[in-house]
Design a binder for these strands. Structure first.
Lengths: 243, 243
DNA sequence: TTGCTTGTCAAGTGCTCGATTGAATAGCAG
DNA sequence: CTGCTATTCAATCGAGCACTTGACAAGCAA
């Protein structure tokens, strides 16, 4: 053991990255930023913490090299430092799901009963997207859709779903997806759609996993279910997926 | 945010895995166990801690689901809980190396000057192994070699290298490897071999990375440079690599 | 300039963590 | 059984961490 001191310091350095992910709140932040960049106040709202505390956590992640910042006027946008960080997060989540018995219980407690919901795998969704006989709904907030989404998906944020139900055709299979396996938006969407006579299923995981698997993605504005500009009023019944 | 409490608990659970890796000593343990199972006292010696303290860390890793145990008489062998854990560790190390500026400095401090040492990439080593014109030396302790090694490698633990120098042919390129990029054994071996007129290079990383890349591995005893049984005396000059 | 928004910084508090020490247990060999 | 080895458990103490509060800085708008 040539130099115990230096070796310890090196491994302490490596462990510092794990430490950064070793707080539930910071884990939530990383999970959220895997969807795209976000300003501090929105992150704080998402994780249910004060802005000051959130800022502290973000500083911690910044010092650890896991995130980066971009300034725009008075707002500061945080984002993951790179795709490796997203990969690390997915690996961590995978190990937890696989090897930590308690995660199942905690997930059930948070997600509620998922058993009855129809699901679809990435591979199958990909096949059906190619056939063009499925409507894929991205039910995440609009900003996340614009930051990146499954190619061919339509944006319909969960908050707007109820009042825009009429835009969802009844004669097409619908697949909803959101942030990942521990996100409830798609569950809620599938339940709501099911209650309203649509054949809806939930993609087993979310956008980050799709992207990481190298499947086709798109970003920026795309024509969504109706027109997009808030100036326009909803048209009678429009653009279902035709492909 | 349906149930903030449950969501926080879930992410705390996910973060608990990161917490387990969030101590330099535990990181060292995981790095070590990536080479294969080990009993407690050996782990303690490797990380330079008391047995009691090491046991505590191991219990922590056990509770977190990252390692498992196997009993054999009075000894208890710890090992990683699965290949996903090794992947997680490699991902973590990768992020640290890529995004944490300080890691470079710490690595230099521990590893000393590596600049002058010849290195070889995995891909090139694989090609040369197929051609059969290279001698690959596994300079890790014998137990780690037996737990798994690069197919075609010979075991020559760093501690034995000096007294077995004569077994290393002078007319063949030699590549030494050990535990990974932050392991000094191969460095020491290459330096020693170089001083003694051998053309030696260091594999850029170690056995876990080779294995993870899906390249051919072997395990158990294999004929090494000379015969293996301690009863036999070294033969004059023998088995160089023939192919 | 003043005022407003967004985000950071600094200090304080209760809690958790890592390392140490000394004692206790499980398995084996006499 | 007694002793021995390998490992764990329990108690302790100091250091570090998460969250709060209140003040401060940076950018913009009037």
């Amino acid at each position: 053991m040539s130099d115990r001191r230096a070796k310890d310091a090196l491994y302490d350095g490596l462990a510092s990255v794990a430490k950064a992910l070793g707080s539930g709140r910071r884990a939530e932040i990383v999970d959220l930023l895997a969807q795209g960049e976000r300003p501090v106040d929105e992150i704080a709202a998402e994780i249910g913490q004060s802005v000051a505390n959130t800022s502290q956590h973000l500083q911690h992640l910044l010092r650890s090299g896991l995130v980066g910042t971009r300034r725009e006027g008075t707002r500061i946008f945080y984002s993951l430092a790179g795709s490796q960080v997203a990969d690390l997060w997915l690996a961590l989540r995978g190990v937890a799901a696989e090897h930590v018995a308690e995660i199942d219980r905690l997930a059930d407690a948070y997600l509620g009963d998922r058993e009855k919901l129809q699901t679809m795998s990435r591979d199958e969704l990909r096949r059906r997207l190619r056939r063009g006989d499925v409507l894929v709904l991205d039910v995440r907030p609009d900003a996340e859709f614009r930051a990146g989404h499954i190619a061919g998906a339509q944006s319909l944020p969960i908050g707007d779903l109820r009042k825009r139900l009429r835009d969802v055709p009844k004669d097409t299979d619908v697949v909803a997806y959101c942030r990942g396996p521990y996100c409830v938006y798609a569950d809620d969407a599938v339940r709501l759609l099911g209650r309203n006579g649509r054949k809806a299923a939930r993609l087993e995981d979310g956008f980050p996993e799709w992207s990481r698997a190298g499947l086709p993605v798109a970003n920026g504005d795309e024509p969504d279910l109706r027109g997009r500009a808030p100036a326009k009023r909803a048209r009678p019944r429009s653009t279902s997926v035709s492909s």
